[in-house]
């Protein structure tokens, strides 16, 4: 009896698996017969992060404007070895160009170099690899953004005030850079960080830490969170305590459905965009495929969104 159930489950599982894997990719690929059609492989390190979902969406939106390119996405689910395998799969599938947003620098340096050696141009997005065996790096500078946030906050508060800093994961490079940049930005001003805690990029944790900060300090002038959900969580905590009007909330990332929405709704005072570089990557890819020279490194600019400029799409820093 029990065994029969199992057989049924197995058949169901296999049927589901087969059903899911036969997609419509083959049809599109068959259309690309001439040399004027290119396939681009995109290896994303972790689609669990909304920002990276946005990066893929930006890439896809940019690629959709060009009928002569097809982009194939793979998600390594935050697993370095899986991402390494994905790069190798793309190389053996013979894609015309590879875009990679690597999880870690060191373990992915060699697979990327092998792709370049196999004659496949590689665009590295957001996080770098070691050495210079790639075609082009496109990314933003977290330290500069943190510094800009610090400087903006110092100006906004008139060079004095008590700040709560809600940090991302301090073992991650973005968390580290957004922290040290901010300290550089407020250096010399009268701003003082009175409470700092690691909220691990998570909104519920940010709310929890902010609850503690509110209980401990009667005066808090500003919250600087390393991402917008963190700033939003802090806002919710302050709102529950009835103190949200006395505090300036600043976040980073400025995704349309998160930070920009919060600024438009009057929840955050400012958010600094951490661009995904999706559109730039497709632009650069087309130039490489057309045989043009591209710079080795492209640093993306950031944009500042405040209540005054959010309707106009923010302003460049």
């Amino acid at each position: 009896m029990v065994r029969r159930h199992f057989t049924f489950l197995w058949i169901l599982a296999i049927a589901l698996f087969v059903g899911c894997s036969s997609g419509d990719k083959d049809a599109t690929r068959a259309a690309g017969k001439a040399r004027d059609f290119y396939t681009i492989g995109m290896s994303q390190c972790n689609l669990g992060e909304p920002w990276r979902v946005q990066m893929n969406a930006d890439l896809k939106a940019a690629a959709d404007k060009h009928p002569n390119i097809e982009i194939v996405f793979k998600d390594a689910q935050n697993d370095t070895l899986k991402q390494r395998a994905h790069v190798e799969e793309f190389v053996s599938a013979g894609v015309d160009l590879l875009i990679i947003s690597p999880k870690e620098a060191a373990p992915l340096t060699e697979p990327v170099a092998k792709a370049v050696d196999a004659g496949i141009p590689v665009i590295v997005l957001d996080r770098a690899v070691q050495g210079d065996n790639y075609t082009c790096f496109i990314g933003a500078d977290n330290k500069l953004i943190g510094k800009a946030a610090g400087a903006w906050l110092a100006k906004k508060l008139g060079d004095k005030g008590k700040v709560v800093e809600l940090k991302g994961l301090m073992t991650s490079i973005p968390g580290h850079d957004r922290h040290s940049g901010f300290l550089e930005g407020i250096a010399g001003s009268g701003l003082e960080v009175i409470f700092e805690a690691d909220m691990k990029w998570l909104e519920p944790d940010a709310r929890k830490e902010m609850d503690s900060a509110l209980a401990r300090f009667d005066t808090i002038d500003a919250v600087y969170a390393h991402n917008d959900p963190g700033a939003h969580g802090a806002y919710l905590a302050a709102k529950a305590a009835g103190r949200e009007k006395d505090i300036v909330f600043v976040g980073i990332d400025a995704l349309p459905q998160e930070g920009v929405a919060y600024v438009a709704q009057g929840i955050l005072s400012a958010t600094f965009q951490y661009p995904t570089g999706g559109a730039e990557a497709i632009d650069t890819a087309l130039r490489i495929l057309a045989g043009e020279e591209v710079p080795k490194k492209i640093v993306l600019g950031s944009r500042l969104f405040t209540a005054d400029n959010v309707k106009q799409g923010g302003e460049p820093l």
Binding site: P50, V53, P229, P256, Q257, A261, Q265
Partner: peptide, 18 residues
């Protein structure tokens, strides 16, 4: 769809309404 379901709702044309 991999995104947080929040009060920013995406329209068909990719813009957001709150």
């Amino acid at each position: 769809g991999g995104q947080k379901i929040s009060t920013a709702v995406q329209n068909a044309d990719g813009t957001y309404r709150y």
